[in-house]
Design a protein around this nucleic acid. Sequence first.
DNA 1: TGTACATCAGTGAACGCGCGTTCACTGATGTAC
DNA 2: TGTACATCAGTGAACGCGCGTTCACTGATGTAC
Lengths: 223, 223
Amino acid sequence: MTATRTARERARAELTQEIKDEARRQLAEVGAHGLSLRAVARELGMVSSALYRYFPSRDSLLTELIVDAYNAIGEAAEKADPGEGEPRDRWLAIWQGTRDWARAHPHEYALIYGSPIPGYAAPQDTVVPAARVALALVKVMTHTELRAIDGELAPELRAQAESLTKVLGVMAGPETVARLIMAWTQLFGAISFDLFGQYVGSVDPADAFFAHSAKRMAEFVGL
Amino acid sequence: MTATRTARERARAELTQEIKDEARRQLAEVGAHGLSLRAVARELGMVSSALYRYFPSRDSLLTELIVDAYNAIGEAAEKADPGEGEPRDRWLAIWQGTRDWARAHPHEYALIYGSPIPGYAAPQDTVVPAARVALALVKVMTHTELRAIDGELAPELRAQAESLTKVLGVMAGPETVARLIMAWTQLFGAISFDLFGQYVGSVDPADAFFAHSAKRMAEFVGL
DNA sequence: TGTACATCAGTGAACGCGCGTTCACTGATGTAC
DNA sequence: TGTACATCAGTGAACGCGCGTTCACTGATGTAC
């Protein structure tokens, strides 16, 4: 009976989700290092050993949370992109959407863009989700007539840029590719500085400054 | 007897230093959250309660490590600055010096520029040391004829920039000040992305890319 | 210079706590015939 | 449709561990007269 088997499987999927949700909630309070299986189980009214039916270890739960967070911020970036219209407007929308998600989920953001967790090695599963925001930005530039930018590049950087050009399929010279990576760095640098408190005393609140950065970096990459 | 009293005080100062050094060493292995007073004491051949003669609590030890780290990276930036010559060269030297320190002390860097530690509130003591790198960059621009840059700024950002102009005593318009903050963000954004592994798959190793960023941001702020 | 006293560093035991993970188990859900 | 068996979810006790902090104490170092 497929229907009955599905019932058990559905229950399993639901509880797996509930465990992750509760873990995310606790993440917000105590951070990644403080996340405790026992506390999660307690909150769900289960005994701690029951969690091992769903996750083989604490690390595997953490890994799933990390992958989920990358996907969530990536999806936020993609959904913010109107997909048509002025490339510059699309670019700005993606910047805003990314920042909005980060501000709404500061601890999940810290989980993926903050300090690495010592003793924890990011598995291969995180590579593709981690690239989604960057790819959303690249996508805007792919179907666009870019202002050509020249510049001298060190041979090492030129090689890296040219290799990226192939992978990304972006129609741009190496200088532009390098600037694109700078823009990507600027995006997350600004979000991190804002969320981690470094702008206190200079541009806090950082909304206007962030919007300004988004514009300047659009120009900077030739949009 | 001043000499004798000094002996005891010197012993105290030395042990305080040894405790901090050992704590720094362990920080590199287990991260801030994993730093344990008992482990530090064990390693120094003391009993854990003895540490309380030197630090009233674990948090106070952490605070000192944070302040020390800000001062160390600030000093690295200041020492890298030749103090004379072409402003652009000084700018590049400061960028390199800052990154070099960060790469040599990745965990101390993560302590100050990584995720905030949940439940830990940075005390006022960190504000001044935290500004040293930024101030080193500002200093280069203070005694320099800058290329004037115009641009539209949102009123909120304009007000923040003008207020900063006064505090920093920098001879530059608000657009330039905003760009300076972007450069500062770019500097630490790039270091963090490098150290935290986000450049793997694109510009790893990041040496050439970082040097390139330093140059482009120098131009960007008008140097 | 010598003695009585005060300060301070370091000890060792204890308090009370939480953690990840394993394991043998019970009872419910699902499967095969 | 009914029965025998297999799978799976969740239990509860236990293992072995480390943590921050307190407290009464001993003995050495420094101070005042």
